[in-house]
Nucleic acid binder design. Structure first.
Lengths: 304, 304
DNA sequence: TATTGCATAATCTTCATAAAAAATGCAATC
DNA sequence: GATTGCATTTTTTATGAAGATTATGCAATA
């Protein structure tokens, strides 16, 4: 049973982002959820946000008052299980199925679109949509004439190592780039986030939130490099990494706290203007993170 | 008037690759063009290759003998103008128009698919195909709800600088990676190619061929790194670079020869197993290449 | 024994239209 | 003066069938 049936994908996404936002900012019960402000955050018109808010009211996350709008029903930090229920993993079932099939070695390296449609028992258009997303993520490509070919980017320990090696090469270099410039208010936001995490905030966090905060940290620094191609590349690498870590065990709490501490050190160095130090710390951080995670048993195949 | 009307895109592509192949290998008149072997090279079935060969016979590049197949009509090195006529630039007219419009600042940063369809006066399906390609190349992305947003990756001097900076960071690191291993026969092929180019071979080459040989050189080295993500990333960066260099002047012959000489130096260092030296040479090479090309006047906007 | 040339089968693209979803506008309300 | 709630407009997605293209098989031939 889907966690939030009856919603359009965009409404689900809006609902997810609303919860993520209030949790990031640790809003208390009673906080006003302004339709227009939220629409700006989500990047859509206010229409789908209305649907999302209505859903949040149905599941008891928000209260509705006629002509006044929606308000948070409980403190945001108590909404962990709701955040989990709306997790992006369920977003596009077809995408999920293809990913699971592929990771489970149940799809050949190359196959025609029609063959995939038969296998999934789905219509062409949605299958194509899922394929487009996968192509965008970079682990499938069209073959010259017909059909598609999976690329070996997500389904092996090696891919995992490759991913970390790329990060180790690119991210420290980004900190040293000629156009690097931090954005003060983003700097403060990152520091606050990582600080909270280092001091036990991870206990109320879902796994997805943890991963997202991590990704945001690294992607923000990449953006500060002033090199847009580098930012895009890091985003791409991170997306792939999320797929690779899909089956990785939750990660013990000590790990989370230590990572946050390392992130804070890097931020401090950047804040002092000591980019060389920051780059060195970043490299060490990435080497250590790889060692902590890249173990063969994480690549066992299973359902869920 | 299109250079090769009546051909399907795949047939055009096959024709192009056949000519590129025989020119790369400098085949003489009379060389047999085997349908099956060519199909393997192009990556399709032999059907579209047949169409391509028929076309090559029509335009006088190949001769046909009943039940014996097709044969090269002239020495491959004399086919420069034919190679130019089949150049990939004409492949998807819609893609070209969007690119031109965007580079000419005639498309807003964000617009709906329908608006684009109206502007181009084309049907939805082909527009969507072109957009998918652009999305793949990374300079457009879907917005949350509706529409598309252009990313600033192809339309400024800065993007050009960013591109070279990324190459400078990634490519030398690739040569130093832990899994680096050259492929002997590819090594010889690269050496032969670059040697020919350094010794005046560039005179019979089209601009597109020059760019392709360059790209092949760098992408092959990236592949040798053993890091598939790195290889993919370099390929992506190169594709963007081709767009950026679209309007760059043809490049004086001396430049071509010098670049080839630098490529040969790098290959020599790799061949000796001196990867540190190779990486240093690569970095110098990229810095120099950037200096030679990144001049503002290349970003003048014009038709064709 | 491998390759060609052609026939047949499978796959993909296009296109028009209906239905779903998102964007937008604005009077009523706080 | 800003925000909500709802009506209207615009955009996108789904669908299915015809036509185009590509894949495949194989007898005839070099």
């Amino acid at each position: 049973m889907p966690a939030a049936s009856g919603l359009t994908p965009l409404q689900r996404r809006a609902a997810r982002e609303i919860i993520a936002l209030v949790r990031r900012e640790d809003r208390p019960a009673g906080h006003h959820l302004s339709k227009l402000a939220l629409a700006r955050v989500v990047g859509t018109s206010h229409n789908p946000v209305e649907g999302a808010l209505a859903h949040l009211a149905r599941i008891g996350v928000a209260r509705h008052e006629k002509d006044r709008g929606y308000f948070l029903a409980r403190d945001a930090r108590l909404l962990g299980s709701d955040a989990r229920k709306l997790s992006p993993a369920d977003d596009d079932p077809l995408y999920r199925r293809i990913l699971d099939l592929r990771l489970g070695r149940r799809l050949p390296d190359t196959l025609s679109e029609t063959a995939l449609i038969r296998k999934l028992g789905a219509a062409r258009a949605p299958v194509r949509r899922a394929l487009a997303r996968i192509q965008q993520e970079g682990w499938i490509e069209r073959r010259a004439g017909n059909g598609w070919a999976f690329l070996p980017l997500i389904d092996s320990v090696e891919a995992y190592e490759d991913n970390y090696e790329m990060r180790r090469i690119v991210e420290p270099a980004g900190l040293l780039g000629p156009k690097f410039a931090l954005v003060p208010e983003e700097f403060e936001t990152l520091r606050r986030q990582q600080h909270r995490m280092a001091n036990g905030g991870y206990r109320t966090m879902t796994a997805v939130e943890w991963v997202d905060i991590n990704a945001t940290f690294h992607e923000t620094l990449a953006r500060w490099s002033g090199n847009r191609l580098m930012h895009q590349t890091i985003r791409h690498i991170n997306r792939l990494r999320k797929l690779l870590e899909r089956r990785v065990v939750a990660g013990d709490p000590g790990l989370r706290a230590r990572q946050a501490a390392e992130h804070l050190e890097i931020l401090d160095a950047i804040g002092r203007g000591d980019r060389k130090k920051a780059a060195a710390l970043m490299e060490k951080h990435l080497v250590r993170a790889r060692r902590d995670k890249a173990r063969p048993d994480h690549f066992t195949v299973g359902r869920r």
